[in-house]
């Protein structure tokens, strides 16, 4: 019942996007997000849509998996759309009582919605094609220069990969605990807010205890294998840029140039 979370769920197929260096994908996602904020007219959004569609096609991940990530932001989407729709001043095209819709409102709302949807889809492409481990590897290597200014990049990356690794485990654990308590007649779904918050206690107490137990065990296992931080640590599969990464980086820069270019098309 808790399994419907896409963000951070790797979809295992073999594609160009899957094989790409995680640093390229991180850079790509970043540039894509920046490019979305460059777009301010139909041409800009059109170009972004085309680019996104091409990447999704290349990734060979079924589109419905991407859409699942959208469910999470649906409420945010609705709120921002209705705010923009009703609260933008300008040429009125429709009015009931105090609610009025303006032409400018429709435009901003539509663009806002597109921007949010593209944002979520774009980052879903990255999380669906990159395993959490690759992702943190990429972050660690890509941000390695921060080490020189005293940021413990390796430790932060290690913490992130452990946290990511444990999310599915804890979800599964929570699922089991919920079932064990439901077997004893616990009810997690009905009641008012206070009752519901109270009904979480039988779920959260065993979950926290198990998280602490797992943390102790993991720390022990890491120390048993002589882990002592990032210093002098080597990798079995060090990240190296391949030809496809160089190509994609060029494509990305071209794409960003096009997106900036669309601002001047009227």
């Amino acid at each position: 019942m808790l399994r419907e979370i896409t963000l951070g769920q790797y979809y295992p197929v073999d594609s160009v996007i899957h094989r790409m260096d995680p640093r390229t994908k991180l850079l790509g996602t970043l540039l894509f997000i920046i490019s979305l904020f460059c777009a301010d007219n139909i041409w800009g959004y059109g170009a972004a849509a085309l680019f996104l569609a091409a990447v999704i096609k290349l990734s060979r991940v079924p589109f419905k998996f991407m859409v699942r990530g959208l469910k999470a932001v649906l409420v945010l989407l609705l709120i921002s759309v209705s705010f923009n729709l009703f609260l933008t001043s300008g040429q009125v095209i429709f009015q009931i009582g105090f609610l009025k819709i303006t032409l400018e409102g429709v435009r901003t709302a539509a663009f806002m919605a597109l921007r949010l949807i593209f944002l979520v889809l774009g980052s879903s492409v990255m999380t669906l094609t990159t395993t959490p481990n690759e992702l943190t590897d990429g972050l660690e290597k890509g941000l390695g220069f921060l080490n020189r200014v005293g940021v413990p990049v390796h430790e932060v990356a290690m913490m992130m990969s452990i946290a990511l690794r444990f999310i599915p485990i804890l979800i599964e654990e929570a699922d089991k605990i919920m079932k064990a308590q439901m077997a004893r007649g616990a009810d997690f779904e009905s009641g008012n807010l206070v009752q519901r918050a109270k009904s979480m206690v039988p779920l959260l107490v065993p979950l926290f205890i198990s998280a602490f137990r797992r943390a102790t065990d993991l720390a022990m296992a890491m120390e048993a294998r002589c882990y002592r931080g990032g210093e002098g640590r080597t990798k079995m599969k060090p990240l190296r840029y391949q030809k496809r990464d160089r190509v994609s980086q060029v494509v990305l820069v071209l794409y960003l140039a096009v997106m900036i270019g669309t601002r001047f098309v009227s």
Partner: peptide, 28 residues
């Protein structure tokens, strides 16, 4: 149905949460 068909899961750690044994057994 769940009170007629009792199910005990493998790990007791998944269901014990109260401060003492007696209140935990009272939960059901």
């Amino acid at each position: 149905l769940r009170s007629k068909v009792g199910l005990v899961f493998q790990y007791p750690e998944h269901q014990l949460f109260e401060v003492d044994v007696f209140s935990d057994v009272c939960f059901g």
